[in-house]
Design a protein around this nucleic acid. Structure first.
Lengths: 158, 158
DNA sequence: CCCGGTGGGTTGGAAGAACCAACCCACCCT
DNA sequence: AGGGTGGGTTGGTTCTTCCAACCCACCGGG
């Protein structure tokens, strides 16, 4: 990945884009935080999961918390930064629900609103602009690269 | 990945979770659709990019469109399904902007609203519930696995 | 006609990562 | 003493990546 477009998407994927990493985040967000459970629920090889967990802890996305001394036992809990990746998981899930599992979604999320909302309803996540609160449509977007030497189509100088 | 939790997140990542795949989508969403440009802007090895493009075309996320006969030349354009992955890209970018590139974001997106909105403003994407329009917070969510034999913490029967 | 350049790949070999089964250790329960 | 659980590590094989080089069709200029 040398000389690629500088980009926060690429930077984020460099941390959480490896196989299983986002699935780890799915599990810890669900409250599943122990090594053996993660292995089973994700279906990852144990050694691979070990290296993923190290990476995510090192990146400050998970933290290793002791829940027992003697024998020393740990659980992996999401940090604030880790929890803030939930929108990524929600949008991935929404896409898969729509395009891959349209007739039987493997999991349904119930949304229990904050301010006086009555009961729970099914969550269908949508991305909106925080400024104008409108749903983001592709055609309403214009990209402005900030890095010197880069235009929207590619490197300018090179 | 045998016997893992059935999940649309995993299903989606099986299609677009390999290295570079989402970066391809970033580029085609920006309008960069040709092989050589993709190689340069993404920084991926040519052969790997070839296999990724085949996969994405096969999945119906991209389509290969001829823009010249003699010599035969193609561009890779996102399908509707491909464009609908943009929310994933936006949330990834927002996270990287906040947590990795807080002082100089590599790219700024301008949002030109649809219905009579005046000028463009910077896009800061937020995920909301389409039902109640409130921002989705982790604590407002409850997961309901639909697959038989699965609870939120793991397989029930085993 | 020959030469270099562009677009879009394919090929071969070396290096690295994933995968799997097996193993290990500390502890707890019976 | 024996088995079970939690949380890993190890060794060896296979699967991917990576990189440089190559290939081919076509175009333009001299």
């Amino acid at each position: 990945m040398k000389d690629a477009r500088p980009c926060s998407i690429a930077d984020t994927l460099a941390l959480v884009g490896e196989k299983y990493s986002l699935l780890v985040l799915r599990e810890v967000s669900l409250g599943v935080t122990r090594f053996d459970q993660l292995v089973r629920n994700i279906g990852a090889p144990r050694d691979v999961l070990t290296t993923r967990l190290k990476r995510l802890v090192g990146a400050g996305i998970l933290e290793k918390v002791a829940y027992s001394e003697k024998p020393p036992r740990f659980e992996y809990r999401p940090t604030q930064a880790g929890l803030e990746l939930e929108p990524v998981l929600l949008t991935l899930m929404a896409w898969g629900d729509r395009h891959l599992n349209d007739d039987d979604r493997p999991m349904v999320l119930e949304h229990v609103g904050g301010h006086g909302s009555v009961g729970g309803h099914e969550l269908v996540p949508v991305v909106v602009c925080s400024e104008c609160r409108e749903e983001v449509r592709h055609d309403d977007l214009t990209a402005h690269p900030q890095a010197p030497g880069w235009t929207v189509t590619g490197p300018a100088v090179a």
